[in-house]
Simulated assay, not measured.
Amino acid sequence: MSDLHPAPTPRGPLSGLVVADFSRIVAGPYCAMLLGDLGADVVKVESPAGDDTRAFTPPVRDGVSTYFQAVNRNKRSIALDLADPADLAVAHALSARADVVIHNFKPGGIERFGLGYADVAARRPDTVYCAISGFGTRGGADLPGYDLLIQAVSGLMSLTGEADGRPLRAGMAAFDVMTGLHAAVGIQAALRHRDRTGTGQLVEIDLLSAALSSMINQSSAYVSGGVVPRRMGNEHPSLYPYEPIATGDGELVIIAGNDRQFATLCRVLGLDELGADPRFRSMRLRNENRVELRRILAGALSRRSAQDWFELLSAAGLPCGPINDVAGGVELADRLGLEPVVTVDGVPMVRNPLRMSETPPTYRSGPPDLGTAGAEIRQWLGFPAPGTDRPSVRARTG
């Protein structure tokens, strides 16, 4: 159990767990932040140069990279040079105290420091050890993993963009985030197993496998159906209408995911006869005849503005919405009472999306400056602060 710092009330469901976060950039840090939001004491181990994302600028907030801030709240930072024997001893002691160890070194990289799973488990057999890589530990062990690279080789970029345009990346680090989410689920399952059996385990996840799983219907189309999906712009391969459609003054995303919703759309647009048209009676037929259906819908939608149709269609219960920028998305969430922004140590941040009735996420500290908790963490582990030779009275593995 952690005595690194007192957790405020209310205590999270993971309060008392110590997480040693040896990861950097996005997937691992995002996973560790989610655990921290739920109450875990997360110790972020950085090189003396700091996490790479500290230098991912612009933009900045108070001189700090907003990229770094996005995935590193609720953590304490200690700067350790693992090539330095004294710092490595601190890292070993931390791994012996941690309930969870997370890293995203390239396979084989962390083992040379005595911090691989076998070494950590020898120090603490009930450790839950999460190793994140780009391409796994077998044939892809030597390949570095970056989100853009995974988007390219997984097939996602081949699906993103206009049908006759070039492949495009998603507008965010999609597979880094999805890998971090998968890792957090795996860690929780391993902790539950430990509660029942008292034993830890190795949790491995790679970005490519997470990508293929996260592409759900698109990867399944090939694996189960033998169909190689293609780039379709904003269209959906299996649903229509399910795309932005032109109105009198701009586009509006309109979704009719079933026959009932299509009937609602036809009624509000004054096209009741369309629902009985043999070309459009089922989803399969609407998909087959989407070019003609799009022409008819656009003609009706051209009579009013996107805002007018948004209000009319929404009032009828049809899924639809404008294409916002990110500011518009945050503002919409705020108007809907979702409280998307929390302020942590004076820094506005996007809140954890979970709502829990008894043990909600907490925001105890903002993203740390490099190494600011180093002396405190060293003392907790039984090491003198840098520049001193007075040993702590605490046992190093107590």
Rank of each mutant, 00 (worst) to 15 (best):
V153I: 12
Y129F: 15
L148E: 14
N104M: 03
Y146I: 08
G108P: 05
T66E: 15
D81V: 00
H103D: 09
G63Y: 05
I132Y: 06
P107D: 07
V128F: 06
G134M: 07
G180T: 04
R138G: 15
H92S: 10
G109I: 08
V185N: 13
M178D: 09
P167F: 03
A89L: 02
G165K: 04
V101S: 10
D142L: 13
A170S: 14
N74L: 01
A93R: 01
V100F: 11
A91I: 03
V100H: 12
S154V: 05
A96G: 14
N72Y: 10
A91P: 02
R73Q: 11
D147P: 02
D119M: 08
L149K: 06
H182R: 12
N72T: 03
L88H: 01
L168W: 03
D142I: 01
V64D: 14
L156A: 15
V153K: 08
R73A: 09
R138H: 15
V185G: 10
I132E: 09
L82Y: 07
V90Y: 11
S95C: 14
V128H: 11
D147H: 02
G140R: 04
F113V: 00
V128T: 05
A163R: 06
H103M: 02
G116P: 08
V101C: 11
D147G: 04
L115Q: 06
A141K: 13
D176S: 07
F175K: 01
S154P: 08
R76C: 07
D81C: 01
P144T: 12
V64F: 05
Q151L: 10
A183Q: 04
R166M: 13
A89Q: 10
A70M: 12
A174F: 15
H182E: 12
Y67I: 02
D119I: 02
G171T: 00
P125I: 05
G136S: 14
V101R: 05
S95M: 07
V128P: 00
R123M: 07
T179V: 03
A86F: 03
R169A: 15
A91Y: 00
D147F: 03
V128Y: 05
D84F: 06
V153C: 13
G165S: 02
E162W: 12
D164E: 12
G171K: 05
F175S: 09
H182G: 13
T179K: 03
D87Y: 03
L156C: 14
A131D: 09
R73G: 07
T137V: 13
V71F: 13
G180Q: 00
V177E: 13
R97I: 04
T127W: 03
L143H: 14
I102D: 04
V71P: 05
S65N: 04
A183L: 00
A70E: 05
N72D: 06
Q151A: 02
D176E: 09
G161T: 05
D126M: 02
G134H: 06
T66K: 02
M178W: 11
L80N: 01
P125K: 12
N74V: 02
D164R: 08
L168H: 12
A152C: 09
D142K: 14
P125A: 15
R123H: 08
D147W: 03
L168Q: 15
R76Q: 12
P125N: 10
A79I: 00
A118E: 15
R166K: 13
L88A: 08
A118Q: 14
L94I: 07
G161I: 04
A118T: 12
L143D: 12
A184S: 13
G136V: 04
F68P: 00
R169I: 08
V177D: 11
